[in-house]
Amino acid sequence: MSAFSPAGLLALSGALLSIGLFGILTRRNFILLLISIEIAINAAVLNFVYFAAFAGATGGLTGQAIAVVVIGLAATEVAVGLAIVLALNRLRGSINVAEAATLKF
């Protein structure tokens, strides 16, 4: 048995999301980009877990179930992201996203 105020937890997850976004927007290294995404995703998972507890037994454990799914997906995403990193490295000799600027018209 334990009790937490929602404000604190939401502040934490908001802060983590913001840190993740900050990383996504400022880092040029592809691996750092992946890590930033992981931080943002963890912020979201935290919310699911907390609100599953918040809802209690009446709400079932759907929130935790979704968290399980999201963690699985995140792990998958890291695997694919690293595959992209390897391909990019082999193709350009660099994993700087600013150099891989072919995604334009």
Binding site: S2, A3, F4, A7, L10, G14, I19, L21, L25
Partner: peptide
């Protein structure tokens, strides 16, 4: 820019959290 955006996001979430009950919630 991104830092400002992150700050703004944080602010909104804090603002939104006022709508939630402030007292603690028992976690079973």
């Amino acid at each position: 820019g991104p830092i400002v955006l992150a700050g703004l996001t944080l602010t909104f979430l804090a603002l939104g959290s006022e709508e939630l009950p402030q007292n603690g919630v028992v976690v079973h």
